[in-house]
Amino acid sequence: MIELDRLTRTFQLGDEEVHALEDVTETIRAGEHVAIMGPSGSGKSTLLHLIGCLDRPTSGSYRFEGRETADLGEGELDALRQRRFGFVFQAFHLVGRLTARQNVELPLVFAGIESGRRRQRSQEVLEAVGLAHRARHRPSELSGGERQRIAIARALALAPSVLLADEPTGNLDRRSGDTVLDLLGTLHAGGLTVLVVTHDPRVAHRAERVLMMEDGRIARRIPREGLAEALAHWGIEEPR
């Protein structure tokens, strides 16, 4: 589904060229649950942004569902983000003046879904994240965990095939984080492809495999089998 071939992304910082991503080659199949780990500045967020078409690679090839994304125009990339990807961020990025339901309906509004259908769909996804009873609340009236679940509901609104989560538990306490991870697990079990960028070993432990990044490259690919030992070897233990 996602085929990366020698993907490179460089940024110009003053006179200096920074290689955020260098020669990344990787394939992610539909339905996988992959965690991307690594120290700060190792390029894991850049990788997620490139996969989600929020950013374009400097060189290399990224094929999504068999189509070369470099060949797509701006409108086609907009459509891809709209229909195929769902984004979840560490900072939630809910719009404060809108209610939970209006936040969830935002992608539906921009997709031109008429309001009756919008309401029906937002109800479905709010129920899926267990927050239908909080639909009328604004983000400031919700707990962190609830906000992230609303953000996930928003990501699910247009039934994407890939969920891209950047540190989804980064701003949450352990209990809220677990609720969010349970939710991601359920969604994955339902067939959604899930890519999570994280520092949190608990998140990695729930993934089927882990990509360890270092200096813009994939340093280790840790398969599902032996995930626990490898994480332990890397000093990433599942907390009790």
Binding site: L54, H93, F110
Partner: peptide, 16 residues
């Protein structure tokens, strides 16, 4: 700014 970034992420076009 963040809201505009989000709109981009949910597929809003420049024109919208």
């Amino acid at each position: 700014t963040a809201e505009i970034g989000l709109l981009k992420a949910v597929g809003a076009s420049r024109r919208e």
